[in-house]
Each structure stands twice: as C-alpha cells, then as structure tokens.
Simulated assay, not measured.
Amino acid sequence: MTTPPSAAAGDGTNDHLVQSTDPDHPANLIPSLCAKFWTLGWVTGTGGGASIRNDDLVYIAPSGVQKELMKPSDIYVLSLAAQQSQSLHPRQRVYLRRPPTLKPSQCTPLFLAAFTKRGAGCCIHTHSHWAVLVTLLLEAHGSAEFRINNLEQIKGFGRGPGKAGNLGYHDTLVIPVIENTAHEEDLTEFLEEAMDRYPDAYAVLVRRHGVYVWGETVHKAKTQCESLDYLFQLAVEMKQLGLAWITDIAPTVPTRSAA
C-alpha cells in the first residue's frame, strides 16, 4: 500500500514553533520525555514515540531518530483543525513545520485519534517488553482484554473521560488488545474501534508490539503510562507464580471510627 505524500500547502519552515527556553514547551518536553523513556527500555532503537497537543497545535516526535538523542529541531508540528479538511486523503498530512531531513512518524494518525476522539493533551507509544509479554500471555488464552484488580497501582487511572475521580483499589482495570499490522499507520481504524468499544479506557495494547497511552495532560499521560507498565510487569511475574490477575477480595472496613 502506497502512502500519499504530505500535502505541500502549509509545509513551511516555521522554526519558531519549536524554539523556546521554556522546558515545558512541547518541543522541549518531547525530547526530554523520550530520553527518560529510553532509560526505561520503552523506546529501544528508534521505536515508540510521543505527541503533545497545545490547543490546535500538535507536536510529534519524528520517525527513525534514536529517542535519547532527539532534539527540539527534530519535532514535527501540525494543525489539528487542518487535518479535518474534506479535500485531504485520509493519509495526507498538512505540516506547519517539518524537519528537512527526517520522516514523519507512522504513529501520527494514532496520536491524532487520541486527540480527536478522546480530547487528550498527550499520547505516548512505547515498545515496553512488559506490554508485549502481556499480549503474548493473553494470546495464549485467546483473550483480547487485559483485566486486573485489587492492586493499589490501579488508582493511577481515571474513571474515564468526563468522569470525576480515579479508579479504586477494588476496581477492575480493563485495557483492550488489538492485533498488530505490518504497517503501523494501518492500526488506526482498529485503535479507533477499540476506543469506541471501551470509552473509559486510557490505553490500547497492540499484540506483539507495544501500547498506546493517553491523558488529558502530559502529567496524566505519563503517570498512567508508568502505572500501566508497573502493572504489566507485575502481571507477568504473577503469572509466573501462578497468581490470578482477577481476585475476589472483600473490602476491609475499620472496626472503629477515627477519633
């Protein structure tokens, strides 16, 4: 399948979009986050990436760049509204700013799905080996869902877009799994379908590939990505010990009220 080239209109230099002394500016924050993810083994080689939305502007890590060496000048920028044009082929992109020697990430349409369907402010994609191992364990049991409960780290996840508060200790965290495709951008429709089927989910696992995690802000996306990776590792080790991911534990209630 041939991918149509990005639309030429709007593909200017616009280097000012990625130039800032503010460490929290998306063009500075994406390289910083990816460098940290590299130390965790989440973005080994050039795999994985991250994208941040700032109102209508979307900042995206490029393809083919070692994530720990990424620079602000490597970042792509596009207008979210401009991508909704009916005249554009579904695989075309109008970039406001693009590096002259790099290629756009094939994760781009999946990041955009998190922004348009979930109103996310940040989307992170990792190739964490714990995520991959979990999908293999689920594959062995013919399951397309990761479900786990009665663990403290579940509190790191919101109850769902537009819902107040986070999940509780006794709640069940559910993450859908979609099948991998030969080309990453071909995952988009399956990711969107999973979002529709699981409206409260903040992540989607990709079988034998990794995971996409999003949040309303960079802080929330990062927190949920870290919490999820912790739970994936724990789940793999629990399986090795013969421990169940879903358990029936009655809430513990204090015998007397606090003074």
Rank of each mutant, 00 (worst) to 15 (best):
S6Y: 09
S6Q: 11
A7P: 02
A7C: 14
A7E: 15
A7F: 11
D11Q: 15
G12F: 14
T13M: 12
T13H: 12
T13C: 11
T13S: 14
T13G: 14
N14C: 09
N14K: 07
D15H: 09
D15P: 00
H16M: 05
L17E: 14
L17F: 11
V18W: 06
S20R: 06
S20E: 07
S20A: 13
T21F: 05
D22C: 08
P23R: 10
D24W: 09
D24H: 13
H25C: 11
H25A: 15
P26C: 09
P26V: 03
A27S: 15
N28Y: 04
N28V: 03
N28P: 05
N28I: 04
N28H: 08
L29R: 13
I30E: 04
I30W: 04
P31Y: 10
P31V: 05
P31F: 10
P31T: 07
P31K: 10
P31H: 09
S32A: 15
L33K: 00
L33V: 06
C34M: 15
A35M: 07
K36H: 08
K36D: 09
W38F: 14
T39M: 07
L40G: 02
L40M: 12
G41Q: 05
G41I: 00
G41R: 03
V43C: 12
V43H: 02
T44E: 14
T44A: 11
T44H: 03
T44K: 06
G45I: 03
G45V: 05
G45Y: 10
G45S: 13
G47R: 04
G48W: 01
G48M: 05
G48P: 07
G48Y: 03
G49V: 01
G49T: 02
G49K: 00
G49D: 06
G49E: 06
A50P: 00
A50E: 05
A50D: 06
S51Y: 02
S51A: 15
S51P: 04
S51M: 02
I52L: 04
I52M: 04
R53H: 02
R53Y: 01
R53K: 13
N54D: 10
N54P: 00
N54C: 05
D55G: 04
D55I: 00
D55C: 01
D56V: 00
L57I: 00
L57G: 02
V58Q: 01
V58D: 04
Y59T: 00
Y59P: 00
I60S: 05
S63L: 05
S63R: 07
G64K: 12
G64A: 08
G64D: 03
G64W: 10
V65T: 08
V65R: 06
Q66H: 13
Q66V: 11
E68S: 11
E68R: 12
E68T: 00
E68K: 11
E68W: 07
L69N: 14
L69C: 08
